[in-house]
Design a protein around this nucleic acid. Structure first.
Lengths: 188, 188, 188, 188
DNA sequence: TATGAATGAGGTTTCATTCAT
DNA sequence: GATGAATGAAACCTCATTCAT
């Protein structure tokens, strides 16, 4: 019977959960999430069967948002190099500007509460980026390595780059470029 | 002068805490840690004032162990390149073989329970590695970037590398080399 | 609108708390209070945010009951002297007959857990008695002393009187009168 | 085999206990008392079998000190009235100046931890004051009441008086006199 | 469907007292 | 006798989840 009535409330819960988790960690109480989302503590469980389900759906939601922000762009380029840089910029700037989402995703990622199916689903939303990387690396130093590994290296470089962009916003553009050059040397 | 505080017990607590945290997360109960460490629930607090202190001391302990494993080596080399590779191997293999310590450290790292003093102390134990990296990068692509950033990139590459070494132990040696090459391209 | 918070339960908690505190002191466990009040240990905290709040509300409740018992009387008299005696009788007999409430109030009074606001509120419930005393003393020996002091003397005489009424119930009426006469000599 | 070695330590424990109890209530930890008294937590129990014994001995100690301060005076007077006033002054001023002892005694007095034997012993130290009161009241308004009641009234007047002396030190002398006049009217 | 009171297991920490050293 | 580590029973309070309204 599809999902419960109000999609607004569902969204409100996810948004609030993200906020509170970024501040308090995964132990942020469901009651507080509900209250700050403008619903009663009991209602949360009509939208998410339990806290674990909430975590998993939040994970997918955030992964989706990131993919959206990264991949749907006004700028389009013909060369893979330039296209990858556009994605890289989209991604790093979005992460930098969405600190609480980034933090929450990191916590969820490290948690055993996120199951494999969810992780798979999360990966798929970035498929387009993965295939671009696949294309780019074919003639590069990592052409023999599994794609998943290359993607993983990219992700770790992204996070480190964003850390520095956030800590030193004045030079964020420069850090962004530095990070991309590092990525390029890794895969090309 | 009464029973002296036993260093064995302190160690047992830290070891057990690490084990349980790697399985259950930071919410692993102090009572369970105490019991499995072979002491009474109250005794844990004669060794660590509270759970937060336990976390911080565990963090420092683990950082220290990693530094020990990475930096104290039979092999010594004259060229920075080779020396760095030795450290890299020590580090990645230790992390691969000490999964629960690695997992716990990751959880602690992401937690607000670890204070700045502790983080500083943790950093210092790896000073030797940092200075080697500093030396190596001087003529490389990242010579303009702050050392802390280069170190951060290295750490993120380490973790990604170790993930793949663990998931595919049969080819761990190859993954280890692949990772090092990536690092070398990033900083040189 | 879900189950409404039950006033019966609130009262039951206060009543039980009073009972247990009079027997065990302020360290009477909240869990025992809850259980004997017929609710679960956690529910106590939906009615009182924490033990301290419970103490303060209990204080106000008891002060209110005393005021009620003292000031609302069938008998009314025109002369201040007689009116004061009626109040005195009401008060002393109520305290004598409500031993656990008296004991509990005494413990609360000596405790730092009761805050100033609560104490103020408690005072106000006896305002009518205070103003009667104010009236009576105007031509007496303590006309120069602050009202609060006169009230304080009265209270201390009350408690001493009640102690003897309780210890020697057979002669409680006489003790009551003796006490009143002492009061009268103090303020008149 | 008599009391343990050092009487200094015993005194130190009692003094410290009094201090801490006046600040934290009867739940002041024995370990803290011991430490601040300069001995180990375990040693406290060689001087006092358990916390309850400590309470009782502290009670007697304090009662004794009060008696000493009240009854042993340079000034001596022939008329009971004047002698009683001297005692009254000694007592009220001592209580005012020894706030923590006064507070502690009050807490002990309200506690079930003090047994009847201890209370009796405490009373006896003030026997001289009681007999003076006995003498004074013989021709007064309370000549028919039991002595213990008269003493009790005096004590309650003392405490109320001291409260006001403490709260308004500038006028403590006046409050002291006011209190004594009230006492005199009560018993004479 | 929405609400929020009710539940009770579980978590961290405290503390009087004991006892090995 | 002195020490202080060890003990473990409580204590207070939180919180995911249920269910009466």
């Amino acid at each position: 019977m599809a999902r419960p009535k109000s999609d607004d409330k569902r969204k409100a819960i996810l948004t609030t959960a993200c906020h509170l988790i970024s501040q308090q960690g995964l132990s942020a109480p469901t009651a507080q999430i509900a209250k700050e989302a403008g619903i009663s503590s009991g209602s949360l469980f009509t939208y998410f069967e339990n806290k674990n389900v909430l975590f998993n759906e939040l994970y997918i939601e955030l992964k989706g948002e990131i993919a959206q922000a990264t991949l749907s762009s006004d700028q389009i380029s013909n060369t893979p190099s330039e296209q990858l840089y556009i994605f890289w910029k989209n991604l790093t700037y979005w992460l930098m500007r969405n600190h609480s989402k980034t933090k929450t995703l990191q916590l969820l990622n490290n948690s055993d509460d996120i199951n494999d199916t969810t992780r798979k689903t999360g990966e798929q939303s970035m498929a387009k980026l993965a295939s671009l990387i696949d294309e780019v690396r074919q003639i590069g130093a990592m052409k023999e390595s599994p794609l998943s590994m290359v993607v993983a290296y990219m992700e770790s470089l992204v996070h480190t780059t964003v850390d520095f962009m956030s800590k030193d916003v004045a030079n964020s553009e420069e850090h962004c470029k530095t990070g991309f050059k590092a990525l390029w040397r890794v895969i090309r």
